[in-house]
């Protein structure tokens, strides 16, 4: 069975493709544990999750996923160095208070980090903003400014620059729009960007 059919989220499909069998995986903001459950069943990974929302945590536990109910940012410091092979942060980076601290912690506790984020540089966002003169609202950013969980808006270029500045080594970068891969001008056309990266050396 295709992971996309199970999970229905295109970034999940990509992420599962990046993870080898038997890996130790931590999913930050794991929701109801669907991705971890799939990875456990199909890739025999050692799966752990962190999720703040009580109802989602309960659903994850009920499906047999190891999950910690707590705040993602404050929970990271308790994990020992290099405890995981892959630390996943899917569609949550833009909601964290201190994204750089989170990314650094991910690379401390994991050998590899996988980050998926919505691209604020997508042409539809830009057009929407240019012509409405308001905070952009698109299918990817459907919230009003006052009830949006997104507090940091970043684009593909922004993330590339940060990677360069931090000296991280990108193993894979993938871009998506409407569940299809984007090959050219990702900062214009990608709705979601997925990066697999690690510390150099």
């Amino acid at each position: 069975m295709k992971v996309r059919e199970v999970l229905g989220r295109s970034d999940y499909a990509l992420i599962s493709g990046l993870i080898p069998s038997g890996a130790r995986v931590l999913d930050l903001g794991c929701g109801d544990g669907a991705l971890l459950e799939w990875l456990k069943a199909n890739k025999q990974v050692e799966a752990r999750g962190v999720e703040l929302n009580r109802e989602l945590v309960q659903r994850a536990i009920a499906r047999g996923v190891t999950v910690y109910q707590g705040d993602l940012e404050s929970s990271l410091r308790d994990y020992p160095d290099q405890a995981f092979d892959y630390v996943i942060l899917s569609q949550t980076l833009q909601e964290t208070r201190q994204p750089l601290a989170v990314l650094n912690e991910m690379l401390r506790i994991g050998r590899n980090a996988i980050v998926a984020f919505p691209n604020f540089g997508h042409w539809r966002v830009r057009v929407n903003h240019l012509f409405s003169g308001r905070a952009p609202r698109t299918n990817l950013f459907p919230f009003e400014w006052y009830d949006s969980p997104n507090i940091h808006f970043l684009t593909v270029i922004d993330f590339e620059e940060l990677v360069k500045k931090q000296g991280w080594k990108v193993e894979r970068r993938m871009f998506l729009a409407r569940h299809r891969r984007v090959e050219t001008s990702p900062n214009w056309f990608a709705e979601v960007a997925v990066y697999l990266f690690r510390q150099p050396g």
Binding site: R54, T66, V67, Y68, Q69, G70, S75, D78, Y79, P80
Partner: peptide, 21 residues
């Protein structure tokens, strides 16, 4: 309970935690 859980996480034990309402 969180003290227990955090101590377990710091040793990378398999620990699931939920605060029920």
């Amino acid at each position: 309970s969180q003290e227990i859980v955090n101590a377990l996480r710091s040793r990378n034990h398999d620990v699931t935690y939920c605060e029920l309402s």
